Amino acid sequence: MSAPDAARTLRLLHLEDSPPDHALAMAHLRRAGHHLDALRVDTEVDFRRALVERDWDVVLSDFNLPGFDGLSAQRILQDSGRDIPFILVSGAIGEDTAVAAMRHGASDYLLKNNLTRLAPAVEHAVAAGRERRARLRADRELAASRQRLSELAQHLQTSIEMERAAIAREIHDDVGGSLTALRFDLAWIGRHAPSPEVQQRVANALETVTHAIESSQRIMHNLRPAILDQGLVPALQWMAGRFEKRNGTPCLFRTSHEAMQLPVGVPLVAYRFAQEALTNVSKHAGATRVGIDLSLTRGVLSLEVSDNGRGLSENDLTKTRSFGLRGLHERADTVGGWVDVSSGADGTVLMLSVPVAAARNADGAPSYDDDEDHDPSSWGAP
């Protein structure tokens, strides 16, 4: 121990039925410079009571005690849940017994006829115990910090989706409604304007407004995918078709179920996962074939996005600014899921797995989540 540790009062519980042996052990410790707050007990009842009533730095225990032995005392200490170093000090202890005690967590063992090692053994056990408890506290604090960080990430994801939904509704109600009304007015003007020049101007304006409506719809779908109102399967089918049309890359969608009833939040997480995965494919993979596979087996939803592109290198997976993959992991964690990444020369596979509870309608058939939000695809519909 360091000098401050040596000067610190040592709280010691001594399980010993011989007062002279107790006095001798305490004398050795005082001679080594320890200030002691020691209590001697010699029965199981008193030992249990002392463990409950006080905090101790170390427990010294004789092996042969009235009614029980040192190994029993060690088990009592372990069962109490107290992390206190335990040292056996006995006049007669066999090697097998000593090994058994060490195997079950004893810090050390000594013979009463050779107590020269008592003070170093106590100092080492107490220091090791403090380090162990400090490490456990640090581990708990780290786990708590990670939990808070995960909760913050979940809160941010939820807040982002809520804000996206709010913006999408505003675009739908204000911008979309105004653009649709403007298109009807321009169409009326075009029908009633006698001048060909005015009609041409109206036609040009109608084309601009139609483009603005289409752009608003695209923004709406990116902000809040209204297609999810119809279910995850139709939404992924639509996404695969849209990806293939936009990129000219074949994108095959397969599913084990035509309809799935999923917990709240899971469809959106799965949709965003596929959206981010396809974005990465279009930007970086250089693939000529893409697959999306959705399955629900034994209570686990699996969504796999695969491509035959260039694959991801080790640097791609570990680089500090790999926020795309990190975002996938964080988003999956919000619904208790996880993401697996497999990549090689033959392409990349991203898989989302989410444990879900089976849910069905009253008639036993799978059903979709209901959502009362507006569908922006209705803008400008005839």
Rank of each mutant, 00 (worst) to 15 (best):
A235I: 12
H124L: 08
Q230H: 10
S377K: 12
M351V: 06
A203R: 14
D69E: 09
P225W: 04
T210F: 12
V335S: 03
A168G: 10
W56L: 06
G380N: 05
V59C: 05
Q237E: 11
R54W: 08
N361E: 15
A27P: 01
S195T: 06
D96K: 14
N247A: 08
R246E: 12
L206C: 10
L350K: 02
A165Q: 03
A127D: 03
G129H: 05
H221Y: 07
A50E: 11
M239A: 15
S145C: 15
L232W: 00
L296K: 02
L179S: 12
V266M: 02
E163V: 05
H124W: 10
S72M: 04
V198A: 14
A362W: 12
R11I: 11
S2I: 03
A134M: 13
A226K: 00
K283R: 07
S90M: 01
A226N: 00
A203C: 11
N280W: 02
S159H: 10
D293M: 02
Q261L: 02
A365T: 10
F86L: 08
V341E: 09
R360A: 10
N247M: 10
L71C: 12
V45D: 07
R54Y: 09
G105E: 13
P366G: 00
L15M: 07
V175P: 01
L317V: 09
G291W: 02
V305L: 09
S216V: 10
S378W: 15
F243L: 11
T318H: 15
L51Y: 01
A381L: 11
A25P: 00
V126F: 09
T297H: 08
I219F: 05
V335F: 00
A106Y: 00
Q157H: 10
D333E: 11
A73C: 13
L236W: 04
D371P: 07
R54T: 08
R148G: 07
R146M: 12
N113F: 05
A138Y: 10
G324L: 07
D174Y: 12
P196Y: 06
V354F: 03
R146G: 07
G286V: 03
V52E: 09
D307F: 06
G336S: 06
G190M: 14
F243M: 02
H35T: 06
T116L: 15
E53P: 04
H14D: 13
E258N: 08
A362G: 12
A362C: 14
R30A: 05
L12I: 11
V233F: 03
N113E: 15
L88S: 00
